[in-house]
Amino acid sequence: MSARRPYIRPMPRTWWLRNPVFRRYMLREATALFVGGYGLVLLWGLSALRQGEGAWLAYLAGLSHPLALAFHTLALAMALYHTVTWFALTPKLMPSRIGNRPIPARWVKAAHYGLFALCSLVILLLAAGVH
């Protein structure tokens, strides 16, 4: 038997509620539920696409159900929060430099937002049926 009685600081499950920084951290982590959930929506679509045109049309009809639209709207808000936090973190995690000079974080961020706008434009044009 050890005589040690180390003090272990109590850590309630709700530790992250105390501080707005921790609350935003938890919100950021929770966006993953919607990012992953949307992956499953795409998987459902892929499976329908493989089954044939009837299953695909049923999938599209399912997407226009009010519950599906509600999920898409909420997931859009969460996914945008993921995008904003991801772009804010990238220059901190991967500081880049040209030669010896560091590239300012705001340039890296701006480049990310530019590429994001381009991706969005391409995807929306494809979804609208433009070749």
Binding site: Y38, L60, L63, S64, A68, H72, T83, S120, L124, A127
Partner: peptide
Amino acid sequence: AAFLTPPLLLAPLGLL
């Protein structure tokens, strides 16, 4: 996900 999920989530608009 950061680049593609938000615009993809607007895909139901593509039903139009």
